[in-house]
Design a binder for these strands. Structure first.
Lengths: 206, 206
DNA sequence: ATTGACATATGACATTGTGTCACTTATAAT
DNA sequence: ATTATAAGTGACACAATGTCATATGTCAAT
């Protein structure tokens, strides 16, 4: 988390630092990014940087969090729009995430950010993160989902169903970003897998 | 890939380096691991290290690959044992992977390795890796799977079905490693999700 | 207007780690 | 014995990090 000092900064100065950071994180992965470049392009002294953030991860996850919030908003919006159809929602979200990474012309932050999500996976899956970010919104999401057509028996199964859908989404997105397959192909693959999830993998009614 | 020079080394010396590397990669994530520690504990001069490996990632992915090969072997073995039941196979494999990480007393290499798999995800999903390691064995795996009870229509659907199962397995394993939930709970969750996958998430037969 | 207490800014510096390179040593072939 | 080729070695140049002593700004109380 950025320190209060950073939050107190005049909007303009904050923006300069954020832009420099995005530029660096677009250039290379979090792993290869370095503070030296960020302070060079932003013109902010080394000492000041450490007054605002603990280290580069701190800054990175701050930016990532902002993105995550937007995504969350979009998810809730789509869920309402589709009358709680989780499959349609997740497909639309998938498309928009793909588009987002393609539209950004000279800025690969989003793509790099995603590829680096598991980089320091401990950070992502720490109790604080998963409890605050994920679980906070989870109940909200559950309540909006239309469960009448879902093949589940209770809340626990709903939880795991969502986890599965998220896992498949995540996996496809990462593969798409890393392998640079076309938008159309990626969406086609994803849709196919969502349909497999819907109909089930096991044929016991034969 | 390690250089020929390393492969030519007497078994004993190789072992010393590998042990030192495992120790370092058990201590911290790939990110925080440093060559300095590895050469310190192994007593191998800096110059020599670079005669064997390009960098720490090179060494890390070499070790990871060895593990992956073992896992692959186990997978094929289980697939034969269960007469091609992919669900049973994957459940058994999941258990064995959890156990493996729990058994290793003072060595968390396996756990760390897994948590770091997506660290430099570009490396994992590069063409070379996915084509060599994954796809090479993929056809072998497909042929062993008993598709008679699977709810699929063609090879492409089989491919995606396996991808889904792998995504869910991966996701659960990572969560289990990162959050340190109990073996029993983790297996229970995983089994529940596999059953959801089998029966399908959508109730269209109502 | 002056003071002092506190927050913020700054860049030189110590520290740590990386990868290279010139030089040494070993091995093998003629 | 001589030469060629491969392997071993550690000092070193370079790069990046995080800290710290010092400087500067802010603002309430006098």
């Amino acid at each position: 988390m950025p320190k209060q000092t950073f939050l107190n900064l005049p909007e303009e100065k904050k923006e300069i630092l954020i832009e420099a950071a995005k530029k660096e994180f677009s250039r290379v992965s979090l792993y290869d990014a370095c503070i030296s470049n960020i302070i060079k392009t932003s013109g902010i002294p080394r000492g000041s940087f450490y007054q605002y953030f603990d280290n580069k991860e701190d800054l990175f996850f701050f930016l990532l969090n902002e993105h995550a919030k937007e995504r969350q908003k979009k998810f809730l919006y789509l869920l309402k729009k589709t009358n709680g159809d989780i499959f349609d929602t997740v497909t639309e979200l998938y498309k928009s995430m793909l588009e987002k990474s393609q539209k950004q012309e000279n800025c690969d932050f989003f793509r790099n950010a995603f590829l680096n999500m598991n980089y320091k996976i401990e950070k992502i899956y720490t109790k604080e993160f998963s409890e605050s970010h994920f679980n906070q919104n989870f109940k909200k999401v559950c309540n909006l989902i239309n469960t009448s057509k879902l093949n589940i028996n209770n809340d626990n199964e709903l939880f795991h169903a969502i986890k599965i859908i998220m896992a498949v989404t995540f996996h496809n997105l990462v593969q798409s970003y890393a392998k640079e397959i076309s938008y159309e192909e990626s969406v086609e693959n994803f849709t196919l897998e969502i349909n497999l999830l819907k109909k089930g993998l096991y044929k016991d009614n034969s």
